[in-house]
């Protein structure tokens, strides 16, 4: 009844005079939305369309850079582990399923079940970030950073590389450490360390030698951190791609410059792409954590649907990132 009173009053203010001839004093106002969906969902979809373009630009530049580069490192050259990447893909797919189940439970008004699914999603997302962090740590420990102050990547085994190795070996702290290593009796070291010590001594002579050949620097680079070949790379048994014999691996404190042809551009694109993806994962986890404090009943289904859409999009980006970064 109140509805007719309100609409009738609207009819007199000149607003509805165009179509009041059919029904006298009983005008129903009609709300015609541009798109038949709620405001939140519309905003989320508009946001996701900007996100599509954002990641399309990033992925597009990666593809163009990668295929425009004269040399691009193989996944094993940069210590990428395909099984770990595949595992992370699996984790994200699982989390997509759990958030969709959280939404279904919330729609069915099963708040506690929805909370369990959302908690599971949060845990899976955290696991993803944890694995990502482990991978980043492995890169950092091999001197793979996106920029120079930390990065120890050299593109070619040339004179610049040789002088960088010489400079590192000539640091005062390094001289002491090397002297300490030389003075250590052989029975206090493992067989691997003794062999590596011999090779290190030869390398020190080679980089200091005034009549070094171009090939010598390639040998130095190979000793510091060998590039696994096709054969040794594919079996991938020991977790390090079968190249744990590099001097940097035997003596982690050495931190000598390494040669990875194409490695700098690889590191820039890898950290940019996975970094932006990880930020998106982090934001999703934050929202999940906030939503876990709510009662996830049917009233909240709209909000869960929206964060679910966002989370699926994050999964979607990883679906393309995984083969592009790990398997190409």
């Amino acid at each position: 009844m109140s509805a007719s009173a309100i609409t009738a009053s609207h009819g007199h203010d000149g607003h509805g005079h165009g179509h009041d001839d059919g029904h006298h004093g009983h005008i129903t106002l009609q709300y015609q939305p541009g798109l038949p969906l709620t405001r939140g969902k519309l905003i989320m979809w508009l946001f996701l369309s900007t996100e599509i373009m954002f990641f399309a630009a990033l992925l597009g530049s990666y593809v163009v850079l990668r295929f425009g580069a004269p040399v691009w490192p193989k996944p094993h050259h940069v210590h990428l582990s395909e099984p770990i990447g595949a595992f992370n893909t699996f984790v994200l797919i699982c989390s997509s399923v759990t958030i969709v189940l959280a939404l279904e439970s919330a729609r069915a008004n099963k708040a506690s079940v929805a909370k369990v699914w959302m908690l599971l999603t949060l845990l899976l997302g955290t696991l993803f970030l944890g694995v990502k962090g482990y991978e980043y740590a492995a890169k950092f420990s091999h001197g793979i950073y996106p920029a120079m102050p930390h990065s120890r990547i050299y593109e070619r085994p040339d004179l610049y590389y040789g002088s960088a190795v010489r400079a590192r070996l000539g640091e005062p702290a390094m001289i002491d450490r090397l002297k300490e290593l030389d003075d250590t009796p052989a029975d206090k070291l493992t067989a691997e360390q003794v062999a590596a010590r011999g090779r290190l001594q030869q390398i020190r002579k080679m980089v200091a030698s005034p009549d070094q050949q171009a090939f010598d620097l390639a040998v130095v680079a190979d000793q510091v951190m060998p590039l696994p070949t096709e054969g040794s790379g594919s079996d991938h048994g020991g977790g390090h791609g079968g190249h744990a014999s590099g001097l940097n691996d035997v003596f982690p404190w050495l931190r000598l410059p390494t040669v990875i042809p194409g490695g700098n551009m690889w590191a820039s694109t890898y950290f940019l792409l996975t970094g932006f993806h990880a930020i998106h994962v982090g934001v999703g986890l934050l929202v999940f954590a906030i939503m876990l404090t709510w009662t996830l009943n049917a009233k909240r289904a709209g909000a869960i649907e929206n964060i679910g859409l966002y989370w699926h999009f994050v999964d979607l980006v990883w679906i393309f990132l995984f083969p592009l970064l790990y398997l190409f």
Binding site: R156, A195, G198, R199, V219, D222, T229, V259, P261
Partner: peptide
């Protein structure tokens, strides 16, 4: 400073040569 395919081949040759491998090792 740009890496070339020849640099990769040089590194691979250096890896195969095992120039510093001691016979006792």
């Amino acid at each position: 400073h740009m890496a070339r395919g020849s640099d990769v081949r040089l590194m691979e040759q250096a890896g195969e040569a095992k120039a510093l491998e001691q016979p006792a090792g």
